[in-house]
Amino acid sequence: MLDALGQILGLIFSVNFILTVITASTPLLLAASGELVAERSGVLNLGVEGMMIMGAACGFAAAYVSDSTIVGALCGILAGAAMAAIFAFLTLGLAVNQVATGLALTILGTGLSGLIGAGFVGMRITPAPQLYLPVLTGLPVVGRILFGQDAFVYFSFALIIGIWLFLYRTRSGLILRAVGDNHVSAHALGYPVLKIRMLAVLFGGGCAGLAGAFLPLAYTPFFIPGMTAGRGWIALALVVFASWRPGRLVAGAYLFGAVTFLQLSVQGLGLGIPPQVMSSLPYLATVVVLVLISRTRGASGSAAPASLGVVFVPDR
């Protein structure tokens, strides 16, 4: 028993383990941070999976044609934002139900991405390079973890810090949160509720598109229809899990990535732990964390936007 524990701990604290976890968690973190901003403005977009897979298809197609990871990533962002624009037009412009529209967006994205990507299945591209920084990457242990990643990973670090600064340290962030919490008051104060929400939704779409593009550009460098395999849904769940706070979102994304990868790794050790028990770990961990959060609600509380998912039609 103690020996098994030792083996598992040895696994967790190996550099390769941490590297894999960071790679596996990055698409979740990217997509979830975009959705967090959109939800903070009061819009519930359930179409993350659809925007991601469109980002994957368009990002891969562009990278293949241009032979450039950056062009691919940009096209992924654009594709995600374009999907989000459809969503914004319907839910903000025409005040259609957000839940139904989000689900439809996922179905649309899954189909459309298959069509766009059909010609690119089985093609190969050069994966995004690992950006090694001189000296820093050579540092023992932390070198490769902190400074040996690809650009997407660095960007995800920057993105979440940027989002935190924006939400809590800028006036615009305050306004965005106000719109999400009470759109009637925000409107009465003269803030352009729909415009702010549209920008937030587009931002969320761009992040989801980038998260999708990360999969065929860096994670597994090929395109196959449906390759997001439900990551968009996990990203959505992470936002709730994080109770709409960027800091907790990072913790949640890495925790989920780590536990998911741990259950695969531990099987390889042959310790005789049933894989079913291991597969349930990510969800068990989620439940535990949710309980902990609700226990501490008095102190920090959930930041669930009060107007989340509520349609807003300006009265004038």
Binding site: P27, T220, L264
Partner: peptide
Amino acid sequence: PGKEADAAKA
């Protein structure tokens, strides 16, 4: 694909 790749890495 992502999970299969993770398993391969492990």
